[in-house]
Amino acid sequence: MITLKINGFEVQVERGATILQAAEKVGIKIPMFCYDERFKPHGSCRICVVEVEGARSLMTACCIPAADGMVVQTESEVVVEARKEILDLILANHPLDCLTCEQAGRCTLQDLCYQYDIEETSYEGARKSYEKDVSNEFYTADQTKCILCGKCVYMCSQVQNTDALCFVDRGFETHIGTPFEQGIAESTCVSCGNCVSVCPVGALMPKRREKYRYWEVEKVQTTCAYCGVGCQMELLVKDNRIVEVLPVKGHCNEGLLCVKGRFSFDFVNHRDRLKKPLIRKNGELEEATWDEAYDLIVSKINEIKESDGPDAISAFSSARGLTEDNYLMTKMMRAVVGTNNVDHCARL
């Protein structure tokens, strides 16, 4: 164990823990753009710099290991000055279009500028300008808004392991692109959207089906309804409609989703959903009430039980239904209809 002091608080951490982890242990928050515990630490954005007594320069809390006897200040004057300067520099190269930016409310840059009272940049001069890549079906990449934290690149190369994104060019011209700059649609991208989920600003945004603000939505954590991995995700709901899906960190999916879980939720809101029971009359399916439908089913069950016995009734349960749905389905067949003729598509 290592003992260090952060803002006057003594903290004990395991050897190898970073300053950030030590700070979290005592509830001290350190701002960050580029950090994600799933990547190798890369220290790009520098917003998490802290002052370490005796060190020549400021240290990035996210990747510098805590050391015994270390004395750290996370909000000293020099630290705050540096952070303000960094925010000023980022803002000097970032459009101030928060009024219409869809990331508003979920934007780290917005939050930190608020925290450190940066209203606008003090610099004039060149700003980057790139054409928005809209070639992907589900998200757009607007390099003009990118702050080059690199999270999307590291997410794609180290966590999603698809290697579709990379840094292109050097210096002020640096931007995120795909190998040979062919555009996202032509890259190895599998549209998982995991890069979009980690973008701290509005550079990578889902293509929205409808307008919503992040502060308007209700978030409900649930389990993905596609394959058997059981990814945990949040449904973002506005006006009784799912408007976006975001992955949840931790759990078996470690904050990842695939194209289906992340972007293919339209079926829930879809106009073709069945809204009323249907009964076949004169060869055609026609709308009916629940009572009519139930009565028909119940009378049919009773009739067949009577004539051919319960084993003449069979049911297919569903691998897509709830555990509870399946339980009551099997209970209905076994306890009430009286047959073990229940199966589901586990094999298909």
């Binding site: 009964i279 709830l322 555990t323």
Partner: peptide, 28 residues
């Protein structure tokens, strides 16, 4: 007879994933 059912996002319950983990499904 066709009966209209609620989708996963419209009901509470559980799914069990491939590693036998019982996880919550929540109505949104």
């Amino acid at each position: 007879v066709v009966l209209p059912a609620a989708a996963y996002a419209e009901k509470d319950g559980t799914f069990v994933n491939t590693e036998r983990r019982v996880q919550r499904v929540r109505k949104a």
